[in-house]
Design a binder for these strands. Structure first.
Length: 425
RNA sequence: GGAGGAGUGGCAGAGUGGUUUAAUGCACCGGUCUUGAAAACCGACGUACUGAAAGGUACCGGGGGUUCGAAUCCCUCCUCCUCCGCCA
């Protein structure tokens, strides 16, 4: 959520930003609506405050009169307070209404894109920030896509998942399960080495938590919901991990706060089936190691670069061809100011698969979350950032396809200590 | 799941209807003293909204209510503690 003061002070920049996010002229009216609603809020608030001030004063007087035994005088004051209360109740209702309306409008305003964000509406408009310089791997014509390799080597079984749960819930088996666990351990160890504190968060969160990072109300349909207990299954570790610092005031010296977590991620991904989501390309449950950073506003873009370097390092070590995209305004998430996507080339499908999304949210999440730091006497909102490092399912897909040989699938060197085997066959 | 108890500032802890403007202690910060430090003493010491400022308002786990007036009384939800039951 954008800060009201920010909108007020940077109106033209906000409008400019919303245009990059493809707001129509009509939709842009929301900025004026918000500001005028906030004016109303201030007026009502001031009026209410002065009524309450008078009431407090009178109540004190009544107390004194009662003590002094001047009952009759106290009675007459009481009537006056009665009137004040009626007025105050009306104002309170109206203030509440105004605040609710204001909140609703503010929730409709996405984050303002960073100045480097290219305009555009679809993934085609994303900018290739860093291309893959070497030639892409070419496989022989009988190369198999990963879902067929999965059958051949008994790595994972989606049909079995259907039996147990439903479509999109893979069952990893044997060396496939071990490969999965190896990747998780490798990613966590790399993150730890880079100074991230490992945490194991809950996999279900309450409404407050889901709202603070922006999943509610924007992406309600994306999450699995446990109605009986009013809990949401996390779509990413970002949600519980960032919320560790909800309602916290940090010292400037605490920056950067760096955390990493492995969790399964649950996404409903309603309504898309077909060739492009076969196998592990898109599933309802997948494993992911996430990195989260809380940073001083002056340093968050520096940190974003460090996160890109970290993710690049992982893919280099796994020897997977990848490219980095800078997302255009239309393809960026609601809450992000700048997002880089990592895509890995899956050689049998001859497709780029998204395996990581690294974003700076600036103060958009921290405002909802009331995550602040002390800056001299003042408190200011911190910047929050996060990125996948990495999302497992698609990494596995690319790894299986790219490394297939007639003898089996060659395990990258960095993983061999973790898997305990060099060849998956 | 059953019975009982409890939630107050960074921490400890007082406060059961009216100078609570939340006592007191500890911690932290600034100052005096000191070669330096400690001790002692003095001062400051929550968050948010509003206002040019002075000031005003709200917040004692969350929400609602009673009252002229609520940290204090009532309802409800949440969390924690103790005991019992169940359990990896």
């Amino acid at each position: 959520m954008l800060e009201l003061n920010f909108i007020r002070a940077n109106k033209s920049r906000v409008i400019q930003g919303l245009k990059i996010k493809n707001f129509s002229e009509e939709d842009l009216q929301i900025v004026e609506e918000i500001l005028s609603l906030d004016d109303t809020r201030k007026e009502v608030q001031t009026e209410l405050d002065s009524l309450l001030a008078e009431r407090n004063q009178l109540s004190k007087t009544i107390g004194d009169l009662m003590k002094a035994g001047k009952r009759a005088e106290a009675e007459s004051q009481r009537e006056r307070v009665g009137q004040l209360k009626e007025q105050a109740a009306k104002l309170e209702d109206s203030l509440k209404d105004t605040k609710v309306q204001l909140e609703e409008l503010l929730l409709k305003v996405p984050n303002i894109p960073h100045e480097s964000v290219p305009p555009g509406a679809t993934p085609e408009d994303n900018e290739v920030y860093k291309a893959w310089a070497s030639p892409l791997p070419e496989l022989s014509s009988d190369a198999l896509p990963h879902w067929e390799l999965a059958q051949k080597y008994n790595i994972f079984d989606l049909e079995l998942g259907v039996k147990l749960t439903g479509s999109g819930f893979p069952v990893y088996r044997g060396k496939g399960a071990k490969l999965e666990r190896a990747l998780i351990s490798f990613f966590l160890d790399e993150a730890t080495r880079a100074g991230f504190e490992e945490v194991i968060p809950p996999l279900m969160v309450n409404e407050d938590t889901a709202r603070a990072t922006g999943q509610l109300p924007d992406k309600e349909g994306q999450m699995y919901y446990v109605e009986r207990d009013n809990l949401y299954l996390i779509p990413t570790a970002e949600v519980p991990v960032t919320n560790i610092y909800r309602d916290v005031i940090l010292d400037a010296a605490d920056f950067p706060v760096k955390m990493t977590a492995y969790t399964p991620c649950f996404r409903r991904e309603a309504g898309s089936y077909g060739a492009h989501v076969r196998g592990l390309n898109r599933v309802h449950q997948f494993d992911k190691v996430e990195i989260v950073v809380l940073q001083h506003p002056d340093k968050s873009y520096e940190t974003l670069q460090e996160m890109l370097a970290h993710v690049s390092g992982l893919l280099d070590k796994l020897e997977l061809p990848y490219r980095i995209l800078r997302l255009c305004g239309g393809d960026m998430s609601f809450t992000s100011a700048l997002t880089f996507d990592f895509e890995v080339f899956s050689a049998a499908q001859k497709r780029w698969l998204e395996v990581s999304s690294v974003s700076n949210f600036e103060t958009y999440q921290s405002n909802r979350m009331k995550l602040r730091f002390r800056d001299g006497k003042a408190t200011r909102l911190a910047h929050t950032l996060n990125g996948s490092a990495l999302a497992l399912a698609r990494v596995v897909a690319a790894l299986l396809e790219n490394n297939q040989t007639p003898e089996g699938i060659v395990i990258p060197k960095v993983l061999r200590d973790y898997t305990g085997f060099e060849l998956l066959n």
